[in-house]
């Protein structure tokens, strides 16, 4: 096993009744990284976190952390012995304990609690809030207390379940910066779960896309966005146009808007993918009819019907709003690539 792996998940399966939520999932997390785990609602993200934390047992598969087998078909290490911290979506601060007592809850024996609490509250920017009760705090403050409380238990891995979804939009960006800074300062490995692909792409580390109970792709934000492994990944992480391949000849892929050289993937159906910003309006391009327009201020999305009937969306910047119903020219302005249907 590679020494830099902190967490390794092998063939995790989990079924609730008739619903198989995780279907043989594999994933490795490197020491010190902040991995964004992203996927559509109901894809099993939270279940996966709970399995890593020990709050659920996988039906099969193994969870290996730092060389220790935490869960396997033979049994399971209880959550309190895993040193995996979990920050719940709703924070789950203990309502009967003040901030200091919440943070001190998980501090291991033999550590000077008062000093450690002070350090951690300083880290999360809440010095002086020791005596306040959870219900007296704002959402962002509760979030930071929850994080401090988790860090206090000295976990080797921190899991954050939708950490920013309960915050209003204005606050979200700032809290996100704060949380990332705190994690970086603490030098801790973390998995941040989110259903928001924009948020996932904006996080500094790798992105793992979980679709239908399996990790569809792991990579940097750019890899996932530019070279999605499957059509589902491509659609989930952003707007995408798919155009059928019309012909393959000598490694040249031909499609309605042009052709390019690409090795053909082995087996399966595949399409040509272009992001909307990889298309441009051009007088000398292929004629297309404008069928829709979404104006966003700094940019706009134009929906075009190609001669074949296929529709594509084009993102353009700046002025110039074509009339719906009019005919414009469209051409490829980026790098087309093949994406497997599955």
């Amino acid at each position: 096993m590679d020494g830099t792996h902190l967490l390794e998940l092998r063939g995790i399966r989990k079924r609730f009744g008739a619903n198989e939520v995780l279907r043989g999932l594999d994933l490795t997390v490197e020491r010190g990284e902040t991995l964004a785990l992203v996927g559509p609602s109901g894809c099993g993200k939270t279940t996966l976190l709970r399995i890593i934390a020990g709050l659920e047992q996988p039906d099969s598969g193994e969870v290996i952390l730092d060389g220790r087998v935490l869960a396997s078909p033979r049994g399971s290490v209880p959550p309190e012995r895993r040193r995996v911290g979990l920050v719940f979506q709703e924070y789950a601060l203990f309502p009967h304990l003040d901030v200091a007592a919440n943070v001190a809850f998980g501090i291991p024996r033999g550590v000077d609690k008062r000093r450690r609490v002070a350090e951690l509250l300083d880290l999360v920017g809440l010095s002086g809030a020791e005596r306040r009760m959870p219900h007296e705090l704002s959402g962002g403050q509760q979030q930071r207390v929850a994080l401090a409380r988790t860090l206090a238990a000295e976990p080797v891995l921190v899991l954050l379940d939708e950490p920013f979804s309960n915050l209003d939009a204005g606050l979200r960006a700032r809290v996100r910066e704060d949380v990332l800074r705190i994690l970086r300062t603490a030098g801790i490995t973390a998995i941040v779960v989110t259903h928001d692909q924009k948020e996932a792409l904006s996080l500094p580390g790798r992105v793992a896309v979980l679709i239908e109970g399996q990790i569809a792709q792991v990579g940097t934000a750019e890899e996932v966005y530019r070279r999605p492994a499957t059509r589902a990944v491509a659609e989930f992480v952003g707007e995408a146009n798919f155009l059928p391949v019309t012909r393959i000849r000598d490694g040249i892929i031909e499609f309605e808007l042009g052709c390019f050289r690409s090795p053909t993937p082995p087996g399966g159906r595949f399409d040509v993918m272009l992001r909307p910003e990889e298309l441009a309006l051009a007088a000398d391009g292929i004629p297309a009819r404008v069928v829709g327009l979404n104006y966003f201020g700094h940019d706009q999305l134009i929906t075009l019907a190609l001669p074949s009937g296929t529709t594509v969306r084009v993102r353009t910047l700046g002025p110039g709003r074509p009339e719906p119903g009019s005919t414009v020219g469209v051409r490829v302005a980026g790098e087309p690539r093949l994406v497997a249907e599955r």
């Binding site: 934390a53 709050l55 995996v84 719940f88 988790t150 238990a153």
Partner: peptide
């Protein structure tokens, strides 16, 4: 969630019950 929280913070079932569940 509160009990699960306590468990992931290193409290065993007994400590979780005494320090979190019971007070609530």
């Amino acid at each position: 969630r509160l009990e699960e929280s306590a468990r992931t913070l290193g409290a065993g079932p007994v400590k979780t019950f005494v320090r979190v569940t019971l007070p609530i």
